[in-house]
Amino acid sequence: MITVVIPTIGRASLADAVPAGVPVIVVEDTGRRGPAAARNQGWRQARTPWVVFLDDDVVPAEGWADAVVKDLADLPEDVGGSQGRIEVPLPEGRRPTDAERNTAGLANADWITADMAYRRAALEKVGGFDERFPRAYREDADLALRVMAAGYRLVKGERVTRHPVRDDGFWASVRFQRGNADDALMRRIHGPGWRSLIGAGGLLPRHAATAALGLSALAMTTVAANGSGTARNRAAGAALLAATGWAALTARFAWERIAPGPRTPAEILRMLVTSVAIPPVACAHRLRGELRERW
């Protein structure tokens, strides 16, 4: 009835992601083409009516194989997909870090391929994943929107899959801003209202304001340093005003990330440093994505 497809880049956690009792196709992304391309390769090899996508860093709960069969049994033909329940175990005895809270958000996300089953007929109808999405970001939301646009419904099942939190390093939150480039592709495919269709928020407008104020402060400081008289004073005043606005927005962003967390020295330092870096990096990636889609 089902085939499980797992794309991997060689994580050690793969062993825990492979469920027992069902056919499994593991696709190693040796060419680094991205999970969308790897999943397409996998589901096209499958011959079962349903294909279940798991990530290589999840842990299906005990009895998962029986539970997924039960979730999919007797679903009406207009149901094209079924999502498992995602649980993110958080540490006990302390508040979660910013990174842990971000991962915990997967528990409430819709149609993510951490555990998502699709009817093979639905995948064939829409052509599978769009391989223009080069990373594990938005490629699953895009597929869900296209499947629903093709006339299918998506539902949620009762099976449970755990998604452990992993430490991706000090700069992980900055590296994740690369996904802003893929948001430009989402806008091109699904229109300007795509965020509301998948229930996604976004801080890019605020990041753009922060980055603009920072650049303005630098520009006016340069003008003041090379000017004289009234022009210098005006530039210095404009630089001070822009710098004050940049500092206020940056401090707000940092505190929003610090306040809910454990507030350890290491966490506070990481939030302060990355909160300065994220706005311009996010805007740069979005601009790159917009230019890529334009040309």
Rank of each mutant, 00 (worst) to 15 (best):
V4E: 06
I6D: 01
I9W: 09
S13Q: 15
D16M: 09
V18T: 03
V22D: 02
V22P: 04
V22G: 00
P23G: 08
V26T: 11
A46R: 09
F53M: 12
D55A: 07
D57A: 02
D66T: 06
L75G: 01
I86G: 04
G93W: 01
G93I: 04
D98T: 09
T103H: 12
A104W: 09
W111G: 02
A114V: 11
A114F: 04
A117Y: 01
A122I: 05
E124D: 11
Y137P: 00
D142I: 06
L145Y: 04
G151D: 10
V160Q: 06
R162F: 10
R162L: 03
P164H: 08
F176T: 09
F176P: 00
N180R: 15
A181H: 02
A181V: 03
A184W: 09
R187M: 14
I189V: 14
W194P: 01
R195V: 00
I198T: 08
A200C: 08
G202E: 12
P205W: 02
R206D: 08
A217P: 02
L218T: 04
A225S: 14
N226V: 14
T230I: 12
G237E: 08
A238D: 11
A242H: 01
T244P: 07
T244R: 13
A248S: 10
T250K: 07
A251H: 06
F253E: 15
P262N: 10
L269G: 01
L269T: 07
A284C: 09
L287E: 10
R292Q: 13
